[in-house]
């Protein structure tokens, strides 16, 4: 039986690439618009489209239950905004996040913002096993700012190291977009699927 991944559709932006990527990597994908269905998921992927408040809007009613579910070990992956909503709050919005990761989301500081394009992630997490040059596609103006030890990968941007890869319980978060990162991204997603299968 292939892993069944519940993919959350907040109603903003397209899910083509992430859906197709996960399917190419061997998972079965169920797209849900009613966020209540997240509570029955075997494994959840929170895609990275839209803005913080809009993304949280539909999740808000189930916030406590989703948090509980992820902290008790359901494998999950949050991508970009889907990662940022794991934090308690964001400078981009006023809605509280899921609060799975302790900390907040802060504006990225630099001469050129957004941080847009391909950049390297330095990490020794097993999800990076066999992942070529570890260059991934980024497109963001905010970043996670954890207040606990959950950073498993960092990226150098304009001379500063920023945390870009996180893990707590079985929830992974990436600031980069694996679904837009060609073969490197596919390798990470394949590793994530193997990981999720191993903890189920």
């Amino acid at each position: 039986m292939p892993l069944n991944i519940t993919l959350t559709d907040y109603g903003v932006g397209n899910l083509y690439s992430i859906r197709r990527s996960l399917e190419n990597c061997g998972a079965e994908v169920t797209v849900v618009r009613d966020m209540k269905e997240v509570l029955d998921a075997e494994c959840v992927v929170f895609p990275g489209v839209g803005a913080f408040d809009k993304t949280m809007e539909k999740l808000q009613p189930y916030r406590e239950d989703i948090r509980e579910k992820l902290l008790s070990g359901t494998p999950a992956l949050g991508i970009c905004i889907g990662m940022q909503i794991m934090y308690n709050s964001s400078a981009e919005g006023t809605t509280p996040g899921l609060g799975v990761f302790d900390g907040d989301v802060v504006p990225l500081v630099g001469k050129v913002i957004p941080h847009m394009g391909w950049n390297q992630v330095v990490s020794d997490d097993p999800l990076m096993d066999g992942v070529g040059d570890r260059n991934f596609y980024f497109a963001h103006s905010f970043r996670g700012n954890p207040s606990e030890d959950i950073t498993i990968g960092t990226t150098e941007y304009e001379g500063t190291e920023i945390p870009t890869f996180f893990r707590k319980a079985n929830t992974y978060g990436t600031q980069f977009h694996p679904e837009k990162s060609s073969t490197s991204g596919m390798a990470v997603l394949r590793n994530f699927i193997s990981f999720a299968e191993s903890v189920l």
Binding site: G13, N14, S17, R20, S21, H177, K180, M186
Partner: peptide, 26 residues
């Protein structure tokens, strides 16, 4: 979009927010 795994930008004749939404949804 179903077979490309790097970012895709679309331009030409985008006249409104709704044109943009259509392109993103596609």
């Amino acid at each position: 979009a179903g077979k490309l795994f790097v970012p895709l930008t679309v331009g030409g004749g985008i006249r409104s927010v709704s044109d943009m939404r259509d392109a993103l949804n596609a």
